[in-house]
């Protein structure tokens, strides 16, 4: 199976239809194991049971950046390799990435609540994630603003890549801004000296969440391909001259899939 095989949306749909149930099952299994292990993990001597939010927070934070990486590669696929499924992948990933980023923010602020006494502190890490969240929303707004997906694809690809280049700069600036204002870091999330009893469940959860992303992403890509097919079918229906003879449904489906490929 190569990328060329996947380039055909029809083959992609057939393949993912077979793979998706297994992926979903693996995700559920790993999530169950991870949550069970996380529940068994000991409380932190300082933070108590709240430390367990980490098992959700860290995978989400990891995915918030990972998904942008996936979108950047997909954007290269759109701009450089002109892979027909690249912009479908990029478009489908954006809302999922935004959701993971939102969960990272939410769990981060819940975790911070007992530490800081407020739900929100302009902590360097959380602030960076917040900016990432805004960038995801901006990207989604861009996809929504243009009706024709193939036209939006290029603009979104450029924006995604610029974002990928800018993210380290933003991260650095925010760190600098934050230390300028409050030299002592309030808390360190997921410090390097993690005990093994934390590390293993965390790794399991990280893999489980990554699988969750892959599952959701493939499903969303399928939806997007189908949505574009509906769109091109509608356009064909609109351009059909009134009262003309019906075109066979098979022929129409075939044309539509070609159009998605070209889009």
């Amino acid at each position: 199976m190569t990328l060329i095989d996947l380039a055909n949306p029809t083959r992609f749909l057939a393949l993912t239809a077979r793979v998706l149930p297994w992926l979903a099952a693996a995700t559920v299994l790993l999530l169950a194991i991870g949550l069970y292990q996380a529940a068994l993990a000991p409380d932190d001597y300082q933070q108590g049971a709240t430390v367990k939010i980490m098992f959700i927070h860290v995978p989400n934070a990891w995915l918030s950046m990972f998904v942008w990486g996936v979108m950047s590669i997909a954007s290269l696929g759109t701009l450089v390799w002109r892979h027909p499924l690249a912009d479908v992948a990029a478009k489908a990933a954006a809302p999922i990435g935004a959701a993971f980023t939102f969960l990272a923010l939410l769990t981060g602020s819940l975790w911070g609540r007992p530490m800081w006494g407020t739900y929100w502190e302009w902590d360097a890490r959380l602030t960076s994630v917040l900016i990432l969240f805004l960038m995801y929303l901006g990207l989604m707004a861009l996809w929504r603003a243009v009706d024709d997906p193939s036209r939006a694809a290029r603009a979104a690809a450029v924006l995604t890549l610029v974002g990928a280049l800018n993210l380290p700069i933003i991260k650095f600036s925010v760190d600098w801004w934050n230390t300028l204002h409050q030299p002592a870091s309030v808390m360190r999330m997921g410090g390097s000296a993690l005990d093994k009893s934390f590390l293993i469940p965390l790794l399991v959860m990280a893999i489980a969440f990554t699988l969750l992303f892959v599952t959701l992403h493939l499903a969303a890509m399928r939806n997007e391909i189908l949505r574009r097919r509906v769109r091109s079918l509608q356009m064909m229906q609109a351009s059909r001259v009134a009262f003309s003879s019906e075109i066979g449904p098979g022929a129409r489906g075939q044309n539509a899939s070609n159009e998605v490929g070209a889009a």
């Binding site: 009706d147 509608q234 356009m235 229906q237 609109a238 351009s239 059909r240 001259v241 009134a242 009262f243």
Partner: peptide, 15 residues
């Protein structure tokens, strides 16, 4: 006017 087939389609799709 010959648009009965397009009633529920977005007007943006029309020529």
């Amino acid at each position: 006017v010959g648009l009965a087939h397009a009633t529920h389609l977005p007007a943006g799709f029309l020529s």
